[in-house]
């Protein structure tokens, strides 16, 4: 699979690190609510189809970016910012 890094261009997937679901909003630092953190850390959808997620180009620029990928076909639907 090729991943389009917004800075370095298209590269093989083994140059990257996967960072999971990007649609969840990280609770503000200092948020003390248990349910909020529990949901953020342990609960997430696992959609079959388009998925917005984080990737880091570890063998390149080391930048994290968002990517939209179809989890069933590995088609890249849009990316990088």
């Amino acid at each position: 699979m090729r991943i389009p890094c917004p800075h370095c261009g298209e590269r093989d997937v083994n140059e990257f690190r996967y960072g999971g679901d990007a649609t969840k909003q990280r609770p503000a630092h200092g948020d003390k609510d248990f349910q909020t953190w529990n949901a953020y850390v342990f609960e997430f959808d696992n959609p079959k189809g388009p998925h917005e997620e984080f990737w880091q180009h570890t063998l390149g620029c080391r930048q994290w970016f968002r990517l939209k990928r179809n989890t069933a076909t590995n088609q890249i639907l849009g990316g990088g910012q």
């Binding site: 590269r11 093989d12 180009h57 063998l59």
Partner: peptide, 25 residues
């Protein structure tokens, strides 16, 4: 590395960041 290194695609002055043998180069 899986980058197009042909002269037309990687000309003098160009820079590529990629991996060789599992390490960044």
């Amino acid at each position: 590395a899986a980058v197009d290194f042909a002269l037309e695609s990687f000309a003098p002055g160009q820079v590529a960041m990629t991996g060789f043998h599992h390490t960044p180069v």
